[in-house]
Amino acid sequence: MIPLNRNPSFYQLLSDSYARLVGQRLVPHVMPVAEATEWLYETAPFAVLAHNTDPDPVFIYGNKAAQRRFGYSWSEITTLPSRLSAEAPNREERQQFLERVQRLGYETDYKGVRVTKSGERFIIEQATLWQLLDADGTLHGQAVIIPRTRDI
């Protein structure tokens, strides 16, 4: 089984659902799927995270930009319940945001406080969260693109 950070099919799910719901490309220009999969994981200048549909969703994907910002390795981030990316007082606000995305399909221009592995707080800005829906409408989770962050 190919890990999701190297899996062209998972990249296609991220990219296709983003394009369908948000109306934009996830990568800056057209490139072969294998190249785009690699670019998004290794060199994208923005963070991308995805979590599954578990009752307590766990991250299943975090590109290198996300790993650097949150301070986790691939093996750590892909076992982390996504709620732990926010401090306890901010989890209710985060949950309401996730529920809005479930109803609407996506939301843009989100801003919120997040926390690194070491406990440092930072703000994510201009984030877009979307449903990971395949072509048949099956929900696989949610993903977020975080183009800007700043330290608190």
Rank of each mutant, 00 (worst) to 15 (best):
V58E: 05
G105I: 01
W74C: 00
G23R: 02
G71M: 07
A86C: 12
E38L: 09
R94C: 06
F46Q: 11
G71K: 03
M31T: 11
G62H: 05
A66D: 11
N63L: 09
V33L: 09
S75P: 00
A65H: 06
V22S: 08
L104V: 04
E107G: 06
E42R: 12
G112I: 00
V27Q: 02
A65D: 02
S15A: 12
R103A: 11
A50C: 09
Y72P: 08
P8W: 09
Y106E: 04
I60V: 15
F97N: 11
R94N: 13
L26R: 00
P8N: 10
P81C: 15
A47F: 01
V27L: 09
T37I: 07
E42W: 01
V27M: 08
T53I: 15
V22H: 02
L80Q: 09
R91E: 14
Q102K: 01
Y61S: 07
Q67C: 12
H29N: 01
G112F: 01
V30I: 07
R91C: 10
L14Y: 05
S73I: 05
D54P: 00
R94K: 13
L21A: 13
V113S: 14
P55S: 14
F97L: 14
R68H: 08
S73P: 02
F59M: 10
F70R: 08
F97K: 05
R100Q: 15
P81K: 13
S9L: 13
D56G: 06
A65M: 11
R91T: 13
R91S: 11
R103N: 09
Y106F: 15
D109N: 15
R68A: 15
G71F: 03
A47H: 02
E93M: 06
L104D: 10
K111S: 13
V113L: 15
L14S: 06
W39F: 15
E99I: 04
A65R: 14
L84H: 11
E38K: 14
Y11V: 02
E87D: 13
R68Q: 13
Y72A: 04
G71R: 04
P45N: 12
K64R: 14
E107I: 03
A65P: 00
V30G: 02
V101E: 05
A86P: 02
D54A: 15
M31K: 04
F70P: 09
E87S: 14
T79M: 10
E107M: 11
A36Y: 01
V48F: 09
Y18L: 03
V27Y: 00
Q102P: 00
G62V: 07
I77Y: 07
T79D: 12
